[in-house]
């Protein structure tokens, strides 16, 4: 099913989609573009590159409550909190959708499945949007991301000459287009042709995961971490980072338990109650993060856990990003070394 709508009519589509679901869109929030639930008057920025934080928080929210508790005397009551809302994730770029598929393997394919994540994923219709103007930090090309096509999307959208073209690819996608049927006209576009130029930073990642298997004690780690500030920026903006924490919020009589994002870059992340910390310094933590992306994850899933979205390159206050790490570990084309 292929439909289209004039770009200046899109606000009507937002209103329609927001009626029956929570509609996440890239929205200008102050000086920052973030995926947020649409509300009237929101300034939608479909072409912005790239949202400051990846849209992973649609599926793995910064914080989600999953139980309420009541205590009285010695008795305790626990009640599950369920979130059943339908969601439309609109304007997800192909790199970010590929990253979400990487999270799917961790949260849905690995037993036991994470019901909170899985439910969100099942209740969400993803409208992916092909790229128009990547920024200088985009390097998705080396990770087999096609900036013009996101294979896992329910609806694949393209902005061409003042129109948004929408192709439904799944039943969920068809249902979405049918719901807005009266706002859409038929599209005749078959395939879109657009030259998307991204950089490769001179990287050559072939064989890197295999190579790193024996390089846990490589001297490169002794240098790479030095500029790290031990903040969590890289992990929080990253679309493939998924570490989390579980915490309680409330008082003795009642409250809730939630899970929230956490970061392997924080010193207390692995700190044990007795005082022992298996990753005590920045060196171990920087190594953990990059090894997880470049060796541990690929060992299980045969794919480097990076999609080249460029967010860590843009946001790290000291430019200690995954490209610098790959280069320091020798993942560079010979002529660039």
């Amino acid at each position: 099913m292929k439909k289209m709508i004039a770009a200046d009519e899109l606000a009507k589509l937002w209103i329609r989609l927001a009626e029956k679901s929570t509609l996440f869109l890239p929205v200008q929030d102050g000086p920052t573009v973030l995926y947020q639930p649409w509300k009237d008057g929101a300034q939608v920025e479909l072409e912005a590159f790239n949202s400051a934080i990846s849209p992973k928080d649609i599926f793995l929210p910064r914080e989600e409550t999953y139980l309420h508790y009541h205590c009285s005397g010695q008795s305790l009551e626990l009640a599950a909190v369920e979130d059943d809302r339908a969601v439309t994730a609109f304007g997800i770029h192909p790199c970010d959708l590929k990253a979400i598929e990487m999270l799917d393997r961790v949260f849905m394919e690995q037993e036991p499945a994470d019901s909170l994540y899985q439910k969100r994923r099942e209740k969400t219709t993803v409208v992916a949007l092909s790229c128009t103007k990547p920024d200088p930090f985009c390097f998705c090309g080396i990770f087999d991301v096609d900036p013009l096509d996101a294979p896992g999307a329910d609806v694949m959208a393209h902005l061409v000459d003042g129109y948004m073209h929408l192709e439904a690819r799944t039943e969920k996608g068809k249902a979405l287009l049918e719901e807005a049927g009266d706002l859409l006209e038929n599209s005749t576009i078959d395939k879109i042709e657009r030259e998307i130029k991204t950089t490769d930073f001179g990287l050559d990642i072939k064989g890197l995961p295999e190579d790193l298997k024996s390089r846990f004690d490589d001297p490169a780690w002794d240098e790479l971490y030095k500029s790290c500030l031990s903040c969590g920026v890289c992990t929080y903006v990253c679309p493939t980072c998924y570490c989390f924490d579980v915490e309680d919020y409330g008082h003795d009589a009642e409250g809730e338990r939630f899970r929230c994002w956490d970061s392997c870059m924080f010193g207390h992340f692995t700190q044990m109650a007795g005082g022992h910390n298996p990753r005590p310094s920045r060196k171990e933590r920087v190594r953990q993060r990059f090894m997880h992306k470049l060796q541990y994850y690929p060992e299980v899933y045969n794919e480097i856990a990076c999609v080249g979205c460029g967010r860590c390159l843009r946001s790290c206050p000291v430019n200690l990003d995954i490209v610098q790490a790959i280069k320091a570990l020798g993942g560079e084309k010979v002529e660039h070394r």
């Binding site: 102050g30 934080i53 910064r62 500030l229 031990s230 969590g232 920026v233 929080y236 206050p317």
Partner: peptide, 11 residues
């Protein structure tokens, strides 16, 4: 918008 990444503090 704060993610509590603590970059402000660390810098």
């Amino acid at each position: 918008r704060c993610l509590r990444c603590y970059a402000c503090r660390q810098a």
